[in-house]
């Protein structure tokens, strides 16, 4: 300690300190901004994957996204969107898009797992972006903490029970019940279409894991009260009481007031 404090008085100390401070802030800043990219290693992708993916891309995606994924007026540039984005969009069948509409819809998946992997490899090679999450980030979180994060950040669009909801002009936030943890994670880090991006500096990877744990738990739990009527809230309940409840009661009243033969 003493040695250090003596050296601090050295004329060069001020400069050294300044340099160190700059380095630390810069380093921290760099870490913070590249926190998503940190896992965007292409290490799991082989050169062959990238090459095959490039061929698939040229054949299936380049019409809209341009050769080399540079974008055109029909589709955005894919430089830097990362493997997670490809895995989400292609893996849920949203891409390739069937037609232009308010938003890309979930469809039967067009590519097999290997082809999706190759496409992801190719797009990831165009520029660093969020990577496909590891399995450890998808399960084993704290459901209660995830519930709080979900209600604050997600429920306004996706509904508190993840049953989906409407957005403006024909767009909508889908229900999340049958979506895999991996795709939920990828959607959060990439912000597909009109969904905001929830980068790791907004919701930490642990927070995302908690959200996925929460969603999977309420999905497997089901409702303790019986059939959920789509988890759509009072509208579904009101329709049910008018149609089924009153319907059954009217049937009984007709029986009750009819004459026996």
């Amino acid at each position: 300690m003493k040695a250090l404090s003596q050296k601090r008085r050295h004329p060069l100390a001020a400069i050294a300190l300044l340099l160190m401070g700059l380095l630390i802030t810069g380093g921290l800043y760099a870490v913070a901004t590249t926190v998503n990219e940190a896992k965007a290693s292409t290490s799991t992708f082989s050169a062959n994957d990238v090459e095959e993916g490039g061929k698939l891309f040229a054949a299936n995606c380049a019409t809209c996204h341009g050769m080399g994924g540079s974008g055109s007026q029909d589709g955005p540039s894919l430089v830097g969107v990362g493997a997670a984005s490809v895995d989400f969009q292609v893996g849920t069948g949203r891409m390739p898009m069937q037609m232009n509409g308010p938003q890309a819809l979930e469809k039967p998946v067009q590519f097999n797992d290997q082809q999706t992997h190759q496409l992801a490899a190719y797009v990831a090679s165009l520029g660093a972006g969020p990577a496909i999450p590891e399995q450890s980030l998808l399960e084993g979180g704290d459901a209660a903490a995830g519930g709080e994060l979900f209600r604050t950040n997600c429920a306004m669009c996706h509904n508190a029970a993840a049953a989906g909801g409407a957005l403006t002009r024909g767009k909508f936030a889908p229900a999340l019940a049958d979506t895999s943890g991996k795709h939920i994670y990828e959607a959060m880090v990439t912000g597909p279409q009109n969904m905001p991006v929830f980068s790791d500096s907004n919701i930490t990877p642990e927070g995302k894991r908690d959200i996925i744990t929460f969603l999977k738990q309420i999905e497997t739990n089901g409702s303790p009260g019986g059939a959920e009527l789509g988890s759509l809230g009072p509208v579904a309940e009101g329709l049910f009481v008018w149609i089924a409840g009153l319907g059954v009661i009217i049937a009984f009243t007709i029986w009750l007031t009819s004459r026996t033969s």
């Binding site: 604050t152 429920a155 509904n159 409407a166 759509l232 809230g233 009072p234 509208v235 309940e237």
Partner: peptide
């Protein structure tokens, strides 16, 4: 927070 589909009873 708020949930999509916030409605009152019928």
């Amino acid at each position: 927070p708020v949930s999509a589909g916030t409605q009152p009873d019928w």
